[in-house]
Simulated scan of single mutants.
Amino acid sequence: MFSIGDFARLGLVSVRMLRHYDAIGLLRPAHVDPVTGYRSYQAAQLSRLNRIVAIKDLGFTLEQVRAILDEKVSTEELHGMVRMRRAQLEAQISADLARLRSVEARLRTIETEGHMRTAEVLLKRVPPVLVAELSARAASYEGEDIGPVIKPLFQEICRRVDAAGVSVVAPGLAYYVPEEDGSVMVHTCLPVSAPPGSYDFDVVELPAIELAATIIHQGAMEAVGPTFQTLAHWIEEHGYRSIGLAREISLHCPENEDEWVTELQIEVSQHTTSNGTGSS
């Protein structure tokens, strides 16, 4: 038999918690001294304590824990519940980390206001390109929505193109099409020289961009905000307006995302004045 203090240490819980479990009838001591009121526990009771703590940590109330234990949950069932909850917690942690990275990126954007690198913006023509393409829907343009969609999508298009034996002839690219409900269709593409055939991906020709304002972004795409906003300021200050979808060209994508190099392209045209001439 173990005193309540020793049992608490063995079970990695607090004495206060054991007293509470006793009070609500969830885990009674094996023996209570009728004179002193001291509680004593048996080693076999650690099994029930482990189940109580595990099920409680899954997010159940103590009343629900009691009901589950009364139904004699098997070890296998308990393992299944724990695995499911672990997956939920890992997903939540991943989402929270993505949200934190998004906040940090937004703060960096604010910090760079007034220090835009407009000299790095170039105008050029982008020729048409034949691409293998897969697409999927993201809830919004926010990084925490785009990231979980675009990364697996790029992995899948690479896998399918490789399995089809189709040659990739240039760096991959992505573009986004807004939907009426506020969601975004994410398109991932690999430029290819695809012979006629039936594939488990789309083969389409992206049209030429007659005039694109472009800038190079260095680093993870989660921190692309300042670069896009530099481009936006340049377009407006130089008398242009955006007329098409932005494209992201993945020039260099090593395992370390901080070393990524991406070209951002926005199709533009010059504003015209009331007499039809372009603004200077």
Score class of each variant (00 low, 15 high):
Ala208Cys: 06
Thr61Lys: 13
Gly147Trp: 07
Leu18His: 02
Thr75Met: 08
Lys56Thr: 10
Leu231Trp: 00
Ala194Tyr: 00
His271Gly: 08
Pro34Arg: 05
Val73Leu: 07
Ala44Val: 14
Pro195Tyr: 03
Leu100Pro: 09
Thr273Phe: 07
His115Trp: 01
Glu236Gly: 09
Ala119Arg: 03
Ser269Arg: 13
Ala232Asp: 14
Ala170Lys: 02
Lys151Cys: 11
Arg99Trp: 08
His252Ser: 11
Tyr176Ser: 08
Leu107Trp: 06
Val103Glu: 01
Phe60His: 15
Ser40Asp: 04
Leu78Pro: 00
Val131Leu: 01
Gly225Gln: 01
Gly172Lys: 03
His115Ile: 04
Ser47Val: 14
Glu71Gly: 05
Gln92Arg: 14
His31Ala: 13
Leu251Met: 09
Gly114Lys: 03
Val35Phe: 02
Leu190Pro: 07
Val177Leu: 13
Ser94Pro: 02
Ala30Ser: 15
Met81Arg: 11
Val203Ser: 03
Pro29Asp: 10
His238Glu: 12
Val35Leu: 06
Ser198Cys: 08
Ser14Cys: 07
Val131Met: 01
Ala136Tyr: 14
Met221Asp: 14
Asp6Trp: 05
Gly278Arg: 07
Ser183His: 07
Val82Ile: 09
Ala208Pro: 00
Pro148Ala: 12
Thr75Tyr: 03
Ala95Leu: 15
Pro195Gly: 11
Thr277Cys: 15
Gly25Arg: 04
Arg101Gln: 09
Leu206Met: 04
Trp260Ser: 02
Arg160Ser: 00
Gln155Ala: 10
Ile235Cys: 00
Gly225Cys: 01
Ile235Tyr: 00
Tyr141Glu: 12
Asp200Met: 02
Glu236Ile: 10
Leu122Pro: 01
Met116His: 04
Ser193Trp: 06
Met1Val: 11
Leu100Glu: 12
Ser183Asp: 12
